[in-house]
Amino acid sequence: MANGDLQERRSFWYRFFHHRNAVIGSLILVAVSVLCIAGPVLWANNPTTIDFLAFGKGPSLHHLMGADDLGRDELTRILYGGRISILVGFISMVIGIGIGGIVGAIAGWLGGSADFALMRVVDVALSIPSLFLLLLLSVVFPSGVLSIAFIIGLSNWMVPARLMRSQVLSIKPREYVEAAHAIGSPPWRILLRTITPNAISPLIVAGTILMGQAIVTEAVMSFLGFGVQPPIPSWGNMLTNAQTFIVSMPWLAVFPGFMVFVTVLGFNLVGDGLRDAM
């Protein structure tokens, strides 16, 4: 059993790393992560120090990506902002997948009226404009990076719930599940030990893509006025602030937007690769 698992895993990684898109996507994500984690150490600048002399200076050797409207180094802010944006993306993905996975597993496992009720909740939640949920939750929770991650997660659990449910439904009647039943394993144990590992792959794919979307959602929340508070930079609030300066300091809009774009692209490519490899 363990041996077979290993075999399967090996061939999974083999498939993944022979998938062109997956490799490109992984390279992008690794590059972005390394830059954001190690970059601020190498490019030692404070992202919040205001420099009156550098107000609105364009890209130069001293400021590779220019300076912003308060003379802060744009590259430094991009790198710090990336940490925040990726953190928001990651936490909200975990929350969305977590809630969705649990709801979907319960619905699929119990079936009947519980399933019906839960799935109608999912239907309703999916039909409501997500802007609504975001706005409302933004006020319920205190401000802060973690809250924002939480809010995005809470508005993103419905698709994972559907996925998980259909996985559980398709796996439930299989022999090894029935066997576990027959030897008297309690339902939670079967769900946790037998079904979840088998149902998890589509969730991972969904999670990868959700993470990319969450980074975009963070930007949308900034646009609505509920983003990460200054002076902490995030790609979203940098992009929002840049809108006033599109003509006078176009680099402020180009770079953070490009980072969002590239990172989302990375997640989409990896998501594709995972789907094909699994």
Binding site: A219, F223, Q243, A253, G257, F261, V264, L265
Partner: peptide, 13 residues
């Protein structure tokens, strides 16, 4: 992968 409002901004620029 393009955030739609960023695309809009670029196009306007």
């Amino acid at each position: 992968s393009m955030p739609i409002f960023w695309l809009g901004i670029l196009v306007i620029m």
